[in-house]
Design a protein around this nucleic acid. Sequence first.
RNA 1: CGGGGCGUGGCGCAGGCCGGUAGCGCGCCUGGUUUGGGACCAGGAGGUCGCCGGUUCAAAUCCGGCCGCCCCGACCA
Length: 482
Amino acid sequence: MSSEQALTTRAADFSAWYNEVVMRAELADYSPVRGCMVIRPRGYRIWELMQRALDDMFKAAGHENAYFPLFIPQSFLAKEAAHVAGFAPQTAVVTHGGGKELEEPLVVRPTSETIIYAMFAKWIQSYRDLPVLLNQWVNIVRWEMRTRLFLRTTEFLWQEGHTAHATAEEAETEARLILGIYRRFAEEWMAMPVITGIKTDSEKFAGAVRTYAIEALMQDNRALQAGTSHHLGQNFARAFEVRYQTMAGDMEYVWSTSWGVSTRLIGGLVMTHSDDRGLVCPPRLAPLHVVIVPIWKSDTDRQGVLEAAQRALQALADAGISAQVDDRDAVKPGAKYYHWEARGVPVRLEIGPRDVAQGQAVLARRAGGKSTVPLTGLPAAVREAMDQIQAALLEAARERREANSVRQVRGKRELIDLMNGSAGLVYAGYCGDAACETAVKEETKATIRVLPDEEFRSSPAPATCVWCGRPAVTEAVWAKAY
RNA sequence: CGGGGCGUGGCGCAGGCCGGUAGCGCGCCUGGUUUGGGACCAGGAGGUCGCCGGUUCAAAUCCGGCCGCCCCGACCA
């Protein structure tokens, strides 16, 4: 009967479900190296689509791609105090090369601020050289204690943008601009709604003045930090002597930013949309848009059906829609449905003898719903279905997030109960004292994910700190996080 | 690093207490019949039972040590 067994359900064991979805969809596999993963073609295709969309947006905003080395002299990392404190415990260090011990150990980049600022110092002399708007798509290494496919691996892929500006205002604008790009990408491409805001000091990037982030809520009601954008002030400029001469002739340190999203987004994509049958992938990031399943009873049927399937395939290909005919013999249609559902193909076209006779196909949507569409004009029908699916996924995710968000939480007791229960995002007043944040974490494991931007804040604004009861200076979004 | 689970054909597992040289389901290969939600028949390939050592005539099984993986926690995108 069954060819592939059912997945562990989300309700039974979310972690096991997640691993099985990733493996079954052939997005990734465990590698021989502890904590590292192999990204398989299907997973890498999603990353390529993400890269293309983001890269276009970065470039449209004036950024250029470059490449800085994987190896960073160990002394560079130590130049910025907070930065070294934050990253030193997580670095992999190369001590030997060419069979000899190196004079100075080389750190495998955990992020590239230090080596980039060393170069900025050479390249920037005048205000005329600013701004510098760079980005690079690279791998980085952070020695993690505990890893999970896509969400946290020792080596991962990301983009890191690094910019230098003449004023604090420009750097601030840049950091916010990128946050907006991340948000737009998450919502329009990943169909993953996010909350934007600023991080508290405890969650801030090591070396930043301010860290902005997009946060999404996963199906197990844990929050995922999906992207960060940092205003670095003059911290790195001072550490690396990156100065420029102003119009007035004075020497000033540059103001800078850095920002990144990683292959972690793929994990977020999986945990936002997928179901107990496997991967659900928004059409705009789907490795394969359409699978065509021919169905036949006799050899005569078979020939006509396969011909119709091939014509459909060609029509879709001509329209720029990626499609594939699953003409495997000896596998029944039902088995093929499960097969492609597990792999997250958004649209399935079933073409049988009855359909051929009537000049139509059955269009089935991965997230549910079947209809018949005429074979003429198929690309348009598929396009429309994919647009609807893309929109419906975002809407469903937004509804789920809101249904699992709680606002106007007033007291300590209520916060504890919510966090020990099944709450997702909890909005509450915050006095700004790190002691309250720490206390909540110790009591509930929840942390402040973000101090939300205006559009996400509650009305009326909470008046008191949910923990200590003193006047609130801001509202905070609390959640258990990945 | 602490707690829990687990290492047996590609995948999922049984066998282990009561040692006798490995079995089941799925997948894979060949042929045939099949195909509108996980097909069936017949034949076949594939495993030094994680590694090292010990006990024994004989070890997947008993004993000792080691390694690895997954999950939960402490660190983090």
